[in-house]
Amino acid sequence: MLKFLQPFVTQLVIFCIGLFLSFIVSNRVYKFEKETDFLRFSESVTELGEELIRETEINIQALYTLELLFSNHAPSEEFFKREAEIITTRHEDILSLIWAPLVNEEDRTSFEEKLKQKGNGQTIVKRNNDNTFSLQDQQTQYLPVLYSESSKKGTTVFGFDLYSDISVMDALTRAKETNSIQATKPIPLYMHTDSETGYVVSYPVYRDNAASLNNTQTELLGFVLATFKMDDIVNHEIHPYHSSALHFRLVDITDILNPTLLYDSKNENQIDEFNSHLYFNYSLPEHAGRRWQLQAMSIDETFGRNPPKRQNGLHCGLESLPPSL
């Protein structure tokens, strides 16, 4: 009887061993494919993040151009508008360029007279909690918006005291202390009447810029600022990747305990880190004093195997930048 069953037992053992080996091989192949998918996905997200930070850096470098043009003197309105229009035409993601002079309390009356003559408001104003504007209280110094070149005409709140906005004030203080371009966290852009969410970058202008670079005390004339709507910048870079299977978020993680959302692609499938097949966070290099993180989620296992073709150079046109940039 045993001899009769022996061939069947042998075949059963061989079958089980084969089944076991097949399971091990298929499991390893599956893990390898998952690791390969994740690697391709992370590489694509990293490439996207690098393009995003490069695009942003190119845009904010425009402030250095304005600062050099204003070197050692406050700009006239005609000069500012001419140069700012050139820059905003070239850098289409810039929502507005602003000149805000430093005004001492004893000079407030003469400054407000200048506003009246320009027809751009009559007083230095602050923002109230209900998003209305009212006369700014007496202060030692003010930083009111005087000139603005914006892609959205007629939206600038002239006379708005930037020192009255805590988030902008923080960036201005850092810019002055480091003599470098500094950005705010995501904030409502109250210097514009529609108050869209974006961020502001600023750079100080001194009476003697050479002295300021050497940490020598010199007179601060004011700040040149640029405002950006985050959606405008990110959408240009993310558009080639747009898919119902993908979801992107850009988060300001400068304050790691209180991260702030900069951008959300609002995927219609409600993809998040809990229901996605692929999930990867890419922390962008620090820029303008801020740290951002690009979060990418996908329910498409093949994402990254055939990445979208991207044109050489960014949409603003690297070849069109002046040598100084």
Rank of each mutant, 00 (worst) to 15 (best):
K176S: 03
V200H: 12
E177K: 09
Y199V: 10
P204W: 08
L172F: 03
G198P: 09
A171M: 00
Y203G: 13
A171F: 01
A183E: 06
Y203M: 15
Y203K: 15
S180W: 02
G198C: 12
Y203D: 12
K176F: 05
A171I: 00
T184Y: 03
P186A: 00
L189G: 10
I187Q: 05
E177S: 09
N179P: 03
A183S: 08
T197C: 10
E196T: 13
G198S: 10
S202F: 12
T197D: 09
D194C: 11
T184P: 06
T173S: 06
T178D: 04
A183F: 01
N179G: 02
T184Q: 06
I181H: 06
T173Y: 02
T184I: 03
L189H: 07
P186H: 05
P188C: 02
V201G: 11
N179L: 02
S180P: 00
P188N: 06
K185S: 06
G198R: 13
T193M: 12
E196D: 14
V200T: 14
Y203T: 15
P186Y: 04
L189C: 06
S180K: 08
T193D: 11
L172I: 00
T184S: 04
P204E: 12
E177P: 06
S195A: 13
S180Y: 04
H192S: 11
V201F: 08
I187K: 06
K176T: 05
M191P: 11
R174V: 11
S202N: 15
H192L: 13
A171D: 00
A175V: 02
E177W: 07
I181R: 04
V201S: 12
S195R: 15
A171K: 01
L189N: 08
P186G: 01
Y199H: 15
T184R: 05
E196H: 15
I181S: 01
R174N: 09
P186T: 01
Y190K: 14
S202C: 15
K185G: 09
V200Y: 11
R174W: 04
L172W: 03
R174M: 09
